[in-house]
Amino acid sequence: MPGKDEWRAALENKLPPESDIVVRNIAITAQYASWYLEKPHLFKWAGMAAFASRQVGFALVLFDLMHAPSLKQLSNERHPSGFQALMESLLGSPVYFVSLMHTFAAERMFMADFDAVRKGNNSIYSDIAWAHAAYLHEGIAGVEGNCGESDEEYMLRGFRSIDEGAKLLAVDSGSAVARELIREGNILLLRHEQINTLQPVFDAVSPAGKVMVSFGSELDFSCGNPEFLSRKASFAGFAGYFETLTGMRSITSTSDRWEWIQQEVLPAWEQTDLSCREGSVVHRSFASM
């Protein structure tokens, strides 16, 4: 039976190197989506994680752009100032506009904080993905045999609850008790992600970066369908724009974040999860990730 390190190494070998920031994120998102599509009745956390990882990918595109050597060279060149700079950026100088964006972003907008977001995405995958692979190949024994002390409170309990629900579903496919056990198990995985894995990353973010990350925390489960617009969850919209801007409420706060997850994210996700059937817009969205 492979150990946790072997599972992690096997999954890591499927990914591009960390230096390929955007492509690696796409691969992580695709892996989450494939696990959800393989067992949509069990792997609810993986489905949510696919959407969350894709959202992180939008920020990582900008982060990767900041590292482009050509843009770094452009940012060191002398730029027009004031009104002239604004007009040039608006009236047909795309190279200057990108360079100007890079200057503000790279020099003033929290490169270290963008890097924390990148590391957080990788950390979540490293910390939780192995257990999904182990469960798929070896069942609950593959998870139980490899969980450390830090995994027991949430992740191990979560997979045990999922496994108990799976066994009940095998006997009665309509069991409400089974579905609730699976739901509770996946929420425990989410708790593990948010408290044990992600919180240390958020703790390292700068005060200004915490505001930026809070405004950027939005999950869109609508899958591009106008009828599903209610399936969007914005932290700033939930917590209040003034409260978010002033730092009174922050996505980096465990209590603020979990309140948002419980009251807005989970209901939006569960609507999308229920809509995922072969050939549906949700199923196609996962398949395209």
Rank of each mutant, 00 (worst) to 15 (best):
Q199W: 00
L245F: 10
P226I: 04
K232P: 03
Y154T: 01
H192W: 12
E227W: 14
S222L: 12
Y154R: 07
G174H: 08
L181H: 02
E184R: 15
A178K: 04
L229T: 10
A233V: 02
D220W: 07
R157Q: 12
L245C: 08
F221D: 01
G240Q: 12
F228T: 15
G185Y: 13
I187P: 02
T197L: 10
R191I: 07
V177M: 12
E149I: 06
I187D: 14
L156P: 00
G148R: 04
G247M: 08
V211I: 11
N196S: 10
Y241V: 09
A239G: 03
V171A: 12
S206E: 00
A236D: 02
F221W: 09
A166S: 11
E152S: 14
P207Q: 04
E153A: 13
A236T: 01
S250W: 11
V201T: 08
A239M: 03
L169M: 14
S150A: 15
I195H: 10
L188M: 03
S234R: 10
A204F: 07
F238A: 15
G174C: 10
R191E: 10
T197D: 02
D151T: 14
R179I: 06
A236H: 12
R249F: 00
R179F: 11
S214A: 03
F228Y: 15
L156F: 15
R160H: 06
D151W: 03
A204H: 00
A178D: 01
G148E: 01
A233H: 08
S217E: 05
A236L: 08
V201C: 05
Y241S: 07
Q199F: 08
S234M: 03
A170F: 12
M248W: 15
F228A: 13
R179Q: 12
G224R: 11
S250K: 13
L229W: 11
S173R: 14
G240P: 13
V211Q: 04
S150L: 15
E149Y: 10
S234W: 05
G148C: 07
A176T: 01
E218G: 15
K232Y: 06
K210Q: 06
M155W: 09
R157F: 04
E153S: 14
I187Q: 00
G148W: 06
R179H: 14
N196F: 06
S175C: 01
S150R: 13
F159H: 02
E153R: 15
G158V: 06
A204T: 14
E152P: 13
L219T: 06
A236E: 04
N196P: 05
R191W: 10
E218V: 15
E193D: 10
L156V: 04
E164T: 01
V201P: 01
E227N: 13
F202S: 06
M248I: 14
S161Q: 07
P226K: 07
C223D: 12
D172M: 08
S230C: 09
